[in-house]
Computed example of a mutant assay.
Amino acid sequence: MPRDVFRRRDTGSLAPTLSGRIGRFLRPDWARADTARRVTAGLLALLALVMLIRDGRGETGEPVVVAARDLTPGHVLAAEDVRTVDRARTEVPGAAVQDQEAAVGRTVSSPVRSGEILTDVRLLGPRLAEAAVGSSDARVVPVRLSDSGLAELIREGDRVDVLTVGRARDVDASQPTVATVLASGATVVLVASEHPSAGRRDPVVMLALPAPAASAVAAASLTDAITVTLH
């Protein structure tokens, strides 16, 4: 009888209970956890190495033209004004200038800080007119203002209306002068600095306009006084 009891007790101990199974599940397997940590650390190190190599390639693979010193609007770029450097691809803006020789001789359209990457909208050209007007059919037209003091109030990026002032035709000379709006919403892309040696002190303003309006303004500027009003 005692032997049967002992046998039943021994057999029962081999069958795991519910609490025993839960305890075994919750008990950590230290060897397996240590291996998992080592594998994870290795994968993270490999990922960091891949990112480092990728960033290194980006920094040396994208040559761009930058300003060698501070530049002012209206300045014509010379060879000593620009230099070529390598920048990471993530730092290079769209339409960045990458040919240093092509940049020389271009006119700066807005202030540029030393080390700043030159782009197409920083230089006078078709892309600047397109960006200013928002249309591929855009032109930049120079306008010589009749009021020299007005140019001191205008800055690059201002929106203006272009007017011509003259006496009404087909009426007598006693009639007052009348203003005709030649173009509305023109964008100022450059206010040219005065050059006393040029013999004329009337300031020149470069305006971006759609092609038809630019042609009308250019034609009127040959014979009539031109002024602008600011928005």
Rank of each mutant, 00 (worst) to 15 (best):
L26F: 11
L26I: 12
L26G: 02
R27Q: 12
R27G: 07
R27M: 13
P28V: 10
D29K: 14
D29S: 14
W30I: 14
A33E: 11
A33D: 02
D34N: 12
T35P: 08
T35G: 14
T35F: 08
A36K: 12
R37S: 11
G42N: 06
G42R: 12
L43A: 03
L43T: 07
A45Y: 05
L46C: 02
L46T: 02
L47A: 11
A48M: 14
L49I: 15
L49R: 10
L52F: 12
L52W: 13
I53D: 12
D55E: 12
D55L: 14
D55F: 13
G58Q: 15
E62N: 13
E62H: 14
E62S: 13
P63A: 00
V64G: 01
V64W: 03
V65W: 03
V65I: 09
V66C: 02
V66A: 09
A67R: 01
A68G: 02
A68K: 03
A68F: 00
A68Y: 00
L71D: 11
L71Q: 00
L71G: 06
L71H: 05
T72R: 09
T72I: 05
T72E: 05
P73G: 05
G74D: 02
G74M: 10
H75D: 07
V76H: 03
V76R: 14
L77Q: 03
L77D: 10
E80R: 06
E80F: 05
R83F: 04
R83M: 14
R87S: 09
A88M: 13
T90S: 13
E91P: 00
V92G: 06
P93L: 01
P93N: 04
G94W: 07
A95G: 12
A95K: 13
A96C: 07
A96E: 09
V97R: 00
V97P: 00
Q98L: 11
Q98K: 07
D99C: 12
Q100W: 08
A102I: 06
A103M: 03
V104F: 04
V104N: 01
V104T: 07
V108E: 01
V108H: 03
S109G: 06
S109P: 07
S109Y: 03
S110D: 00
S110L: 10
S110M: 00
P111H: 06
P111S: 02
V112M: 00
V112Q: 07
R113Y: 11
S114C: 08
G115Q: 08
E116I: 06
I117A: 02
I117E: 01
L118K: 07
L118F: 04
L118R: 01
